[in-house]
């Protein structure tokens, strides 16, 4: 299999520039939302809450809130990136170029991941304004965030190929990811749930992500970091296989 580095970087750069063109809008809204969560749940209510497993409540919710934004932003950024050229028809250029699935993914998904990492950094910086927290395993945290951003950018890419309208584009982040993240232990430890809800929660894949990230932050979590990483990797692999198949069959790309 060949890989054209120039083509891949060209797409990557163009996508990132497109992001910077609208950087203000793309960053302000998620950052503002996160601030509101910190003010309400971290500072205002958090002060009256007990520690969770020895972590102050304000700090406890940081990984979950970070994921809340990351999941929906990664997904929607990547889906938008590939949906727009399909929508305007300018995708003809990509299709007529000597560019395969690898370059396309590197460019579009790579750019979406980069945006998510920038966003994550900004959100964490913002969080320090509201709560005190200390990241126990920063390197692991970085790689876990990278992994999650990649997996959900890939999911977004699939979404952008599948969608045939703007509503569908927003449906998955809004109707699926956000509720699952809310219920996935962002604001509580699932150990705090009574049965059968605790067992039900274990079927929510986001629980493992929140838990995994929380482990990299505070060294403790509901499920083991190995399980969380394994599941995320599995998810990422499935996405790549799906995208590979899409490119091979040309579904939604070629008439």
């Amino acid at each position: 299999m060949s890989f054209n580095l120039t083509s891949a970087f060209t797409i990557y750069r163009a996508e990132l520039l497109r992001f910077l063109r609208t950087a203000f809008g793309s960053l302000v809204s998620p950052v503002l939302t996160t601030c509101l969560y910190f003010i309400v749940f971290g500072a205002a209510i958090g002060g009256r809450m007990n520690e969770v497993g020895g972590v102050p409540y304000g700090a406890f919710i940081v990984p979950g809130l970070l994921l809340l934004t990351m999941l929906s932003e990664s997904t929607s950024n990547a889906s938008f990136g590939i949906y727009m050229p399909r929508f305007t028809g300018s995708i003809y250029e990509l299709l007529s170029a000597p560019v395969g699935v690898a370059e396309t993914l590197f460019g579009y998904v790579g750019a979406a991941v980069t945006k998510s990492l920038i966003l994550a950094a900004i959100i964490l910086l913002t969080a320090t304004l509201f709560v005190d927290f200390h990241i126990a395993h920063p390197v692991a945290a970085f790689f876990f965030i990278l992994l999650v951003a990649s997996a959900f950018s890939l999911l977004g890419f699939i979404l952008g190929l599948w969608a045939d309208g703007f509503e569908k584009l927003q449906m998955v982040p809004l109707l699926l990811l956000t509720p699952l993240t809310f219920l996935g232990g962002t604001f509580y430890s699932i150990d705090m749930l009574a049965e059968p809800w605790r067992t039900v929660a274990l079927f929510n894949p986001i629980v493992y992500l929140v838990s995994g990230l929380r482990w990299t932050f505070y060294g403790q979590a509901d499920v083991s970091i190995a399980v969380a990483t394994g599941l995320t990797l599995l998810f990422l692999t499935i996405c790549i296989v799906i995208i590979g198949t899409i490119f091979q069959t040309g579904w939604r790309l070629r008439e």
Partner: peptide
């Protein structure tokens, strides 16, 4: 300008 330069890069030309 950027749009035209993009096309060149997309086709793998420096």
């Amino acid at each position: 300008h950027r749009s035209v330069a993009y096309s060149r890069g997309l086709f793998g030309k420096p």
